[in-house]
């Protein structure tokens, strides 16, 4: 389980993240919302151990993150950055197979996992294609399959951090990818996902964290967080909250 206590991050003399207390829960999806520059990716960088905190701690299974060895950490914590720049013509299954690098599970097992992860990310039909020949959205799904493969099948004790996994996807895939993420969490993994679409967040997240200027403004269920006042305060947006006619989750409509 991944935990942050009183986490603060300084960058270039500025405080870009302050006072974050957070515990990811097994089997649950936590959504992180906030305007551009609110510190969402910084939070993800700190939680993944890439940015050293100025104050506070990040603990994985109770042990400070910096005490974990690289491969040990990679076997239970996977991170999908916002965008990846890969300019070499690997085949799709080779890219996804890199998710298995921290493991030593053998070729046969790895191949099965790669295929399963590709199916989960709705990218099974891309098998055999060159990565460079894919569209932006297809690449994004391949990288999602890669981080899923890294933790496959997503048992309890695994943590997945996703930075805007739907930013380049068409509407259908925005939903299918977040459904896949939920299904992955249902196996026991804890998931944190940064999103921009409030309605997607309302539909697929169990809890939401609202960030503004590096500070947490609200943390709770979608019903608690997605209310007109906090959204007005954080995004400067006048919204109406309704109910989804079939699913029942909050539906955010801009006035």
């Amino acid at each position: 389980m991944l935990q942050a206590e009183a986490l603060s991050i300084h960058r270039g003399g500025r405080t870009v993240l302050e006072g974050v207390d957070l515990a990811l829960q097994p089997g649950r999806v936590l959504g992180v919302l906030g305007p551009n520059g609110a510190g969402k990716s910084t939070l993800l960088g700190a939680l993944s151990g890439e940015l050293a905190p100025a104050h506070g701690h990040v603990r994985l299974h109770g042990r400070p993150l910096e005490q974990w060895s690289g491969s040990e950490r990679a076997r239970c914590l996977a991170v999908l950055p916002q965008s990846s720049t890969l300019s070499f013509g690997f085949r799709v299954e080779e890219v996804v197979g890199m998710g298995r690098l921290p493991h030593a599970t053998g070729l046969v097992c790895d191949r099965e996992i790669v295929e399963a992860a590709l199916r989960a990310a709705d990218a099974a039909h891309l098998f055999g294609r060159s990565y460079l020949a894919l569209s932006g959205g297809e690449r994004q799904r391949v990288h999602l399959a890669r981080v899923l493969a890294q933790l496959w099948p997503g048992a309890q004790g695994q943590t997945l951090l996703l930075d805007e996994p739907t930013s380049m996807l068409d509407p259908l895939h925005q939903h299918s990818i977040l459904q896949a993420t939920r299904a992955f969490a249902a196996q026991g993994a804890a998931v944190l996902v940064i999103l921009h679409d409030l309605n997607l967040a309302a539909r697929y997240c169990d809890r939401l964290l609202l960030l503004q200027d590096g500070r947490p403004q609200a943390l709770g269920s979608p019903d608690e967080v997605l209310r007109p006042e906090p959204l007005k305060q954080v995004f400067g947006l006048d919204v109406l909250i309704q109910r989804h006619p079939e699913q029942g989750h909050p539906l955010i409509v801009v006035r």
């Binding site: 993944s48 890439e50 060895s69 690289g70 491969s71 040990e72 950490r73 990679a74 076997r75 914590l77 996977a78 991170v79 950055p81 990846s84 720049t85 890969l86 300019s87 070499f88 690997f90 890219v95 890199m98 998710g99 690098l101 921290p102 890294q150």
Partner: peptide, 15 residues
């Protein structure tokens, strides 16, 4: 191989 994905990605893969 992992480094070709990016430095962050390689770090997240445990290198």
């Amino acid at each position: 191989n992992a480094l070709l994905l990016g430095e962050s990605e390689a770090r997240h893969l445990g290198f």
